[in-house]
Each structure stands twice: as C-alpha cells, then as structure tokens.
C-alpha cells in the first residue's frame, strides 16, 4: 500500500468517526493539491482562493449525503479534484451568463505576478516568480483538459490513473492530454524565449505551426 492510499484511509476513517472534525483532516491533507489546480483554472490568486473554498464547501455538502459505505471507499483526492473542476465549470457558466463578463481562462497581470505570499522568502520568491509568471501565463493558453492534465501529472506528480479519474477519461486519453499539453507548452516556452514580449507574435506562430490538435 502506498503513502497516498494510507493517507486516504486515515482521512476516510476520520470522516466516518466525525464528519465535521474529519473534514478538518480533508482540508489539511488536500488543501494544497486542490488550490494548486484551482490556480490553473482561474485568472487571479483571489479567484483561486474563492474557487478552492467553494469546492471544499460543495464537497462537504456531497459527503453529508453519502452513506458510510461509500465514504469508506471514496478515492478522496481525485474525487475532490473532480468536484473542483465542476465548481470551476459552474462558476464559468455563471460568469458567462452575466453581461460583459471577462473571459474566464485568460491570465491577468495579477495571475502573472501574484505577489509574495506570507510563507515565501522574498529573494526566493523573486526568482521563482520570474520563472513561474511566464509558465503560468503560457499554461493558461492550453485547453482546460490539457492544462489540468499537465498540472496533475507534472506539478502534483499524480499517477496517470488518477489523472484519468479526474478528467473522467481512459488512461490512454489522459496520457495523450498530458503529452499534447506538454508538447504545446514546450513550443510556447521556446517561442517566448526566442523573442521578447509576453503576448508577442512568436508564440502564436509556433502554436499555429505546431502539431495538429483535435
């Protein structure tokens, strides 16, 4: 049994013991993973925090209606990430219904440079912000499934089977989302590196001449 499964069993036991107190374990254990994916699904750090909280509330509401047998075997991490994606999709739909809403999946200045967080060492932060800002912006140009697949596999190191569960596709399709996403990202990074300008033409040119995506 691997570490992830041991964690899952411990958290599920805590939930069965006391749903509300056990949910503290859920948030402690999976808050980082859910937030990391939320960052890739939103335009700003503040939106990501709201989305993370909203997803955890929706997940709690679902759990409150589940029988104990179902909670005992629930694959918590991919299930939470599925709830997160559904929450993001609903939020996007709501935003689209509102007139003159801004496009959902487009990075803003704030996303590109979210500023130092309390836990960060400033010098360390500056360096990582430099690398991260470009990458987050380029990542935002990927279709949602590819973007999520790349983040799950390469930022969070999830096994491909779990990536497939979150995306609700087979493992083969999940693998192809990861590799197509990575390929596209590599092209974007290369293009962004060869010529200046965060939204410069080169990236688009590389995209257009890149491998055909379905």
């Amino acid at each position: 049994m691997d570490a992830a499964e041991r964690t899952r069993q411990r958290v599920c036991r805590a939930l069965l013991d006391d749903l509300d107190a056990g949910y503290g374990e859920v948030v402690r254990e999976y808050g980082g993973v859910v937030h990391s994916v939320a960052r890739a699904l939103t335009r700003s750090a503040a939106d990501a925090e709201d989305l993370t909280a909203e997803a955890f509330l929706r997940a709690y509401r679902a759990l409150a209606g589940y029988p104990a047998e179902r909670i005992a075997v629930l694959a918590l991490r991919p299930w939470l990430l599925t709830v997160l994606r559904n929450t993001a999709r609903n939020a996007a739909r709501d935003a689209a219904r509102r007139p003159a809403g801004p496009p959902r999946y487009e990075p803003t200045e704030r996303e590109l440079d979210p500023g130092p967080t309390a836990l960060d060492d400033p010098a360390d932060h500056a360096e990582r912000a430099e690398a991260g800002r470009g990458l987050a912006a380029l990542l935002a140009r990927l279709p949602e499934a590819q973007r999520t697949a790349v983040v799950l596999r390469h930022a969070l190191d999830l096994p491909i089977a779990e990536v497939a569960q979150v995306l609700r596709v087979g493992e083969g399709t999940a693998k192809s989302h990861v590799s197509r996403g990575l390929h596209r990202l590599r092209a974007l990074v290369t293009a962004a590196g060869t010529e200046p300008g965060p939204d410069g033409e080169p990236a688009h040119r590389v995209l257009a001449s890149g491998r055909r995506d379905r």
Binding site: G32, H35, D50, T52, L135, L139, H154, A155, D157
Partner: peptide, 20 residues
C-alpha cells in the same frame, strides 16, 4: 519546463479553514 511545472504546486491558502 518540468522544474517550472513542479514549482506550480502550492500550499493551501492561509485563509482556507476560515472560509470553509
């Protein structure tokens, strides 16, 4: 690229427990 992607893993927001 892979190092950069690994760096995108982040902690839970500090205010998450209060929001939930």
């Amino acid at each position: 690229l892979l190092a950069g992607l690994a760096g995108l893993a982040t902690e839970a927001p500090a205010g998450l427990p209060d929001a939930v």
